[in-house]
Design a protein around this nucleic acid. Sequence first.
DNA 1: GTGCTTGCAAACAGTTTGCAGATAG
DNA 2: CTATCTGCAAACTGTTTGCAAGCAC
Lengths: 146, 146
Amino acid sequence: MVDSQTRFEELVNRLREQGYRLTPQRMALLRLLAASDGHPSASHLYDQLHTQFPTTRLGTIYKTLNLLKDLDEVLELGFSDDDNRYDGNKPYPHPHLICVRCRKIMDPEVKLAQDLVQQVAQQSGYQIVSHRLDFYGVCPDCREGE
Amino acid sequence: MVDSQTRFEELVNRLREQGYRLTPQRMALLRLLAASDGHPSASHLYDQLHTQFPTTRLGTIYKTLNLLKDLDEVLELGFSDDDNRYDGNKPYPHPHLICVRCRKIMDPEVKLAQDLVQQVAQQSGYQIVSHRLDFYGVCPDCREGE
DNA sequence: GTGCTTGCAAACAGTTTGCAGATAG
DNA sequence: CTATCTGCAAACTGTTTGCAAGCAC
């Protein structure tokens, strides 16, 4: 992972150069995204921002997250049965490891064989634009109490 | 893919042996699930059932789908930004290929290297219970009109 | 000063739940 | 006969939208 201060500055510059405004709330959100490796949800980010900016609402957070998503600076991990999660450090497809008990999400140190993507493209005639690989399991902490 | 009649009978027997009732609506839903290779959504199934059983409601369809999901006879593909899709023919993890334009879903003829799963388990200490691999792309039909 | 951003509240959509009447076994 | 299933409607939840006031530039 890139240094969190560096990533923060990257995000700030990216918004600035695109002509977006850097409000204090946005700066704080960018700082959180750059600092977190835990794939926070919008409401987790809200909990953290709320202490500093008591009037901040979830809606505002979603707006900024969607903005960053459109700029490809944040990866959104959507779940149909749970809050979506956001990764502001590695905004490109990569495998995730999800604990089915505590919902902790980490990045395993593996990657999808690139020729598998090629193979799918050739077989199907699809133009592949992205992919997603999630492993579901029980994390060591959650296995302990069994 | 297994023959659709065979799969239908499998599903019927599975419900029967578990003591669940085989109502006409359920039978029709099982038939649809066994026959479809297009990963239908609940509302797609509803559209089809509705002609035969005009009083059938989406809620009922969800109840039966969840029942089959609990019996591991249907695979649910959840999407945070779209209807969930259901696969009654291959109710185990396998890769999917999703058109980002028309939302058609097919099964590419590839499979995830099994040792990748092992590798993740060993590295992380997680007990892996499942996984999901989705490729996103533009299907040949949707590329045509470009 | 201009118009993007925020706070706020209401809307949205897919899915789930609760209940009374219908029905499979 | 009776417990399960269906139809129905309301509830639920995470996310999005619309608008007026605020503030970055």
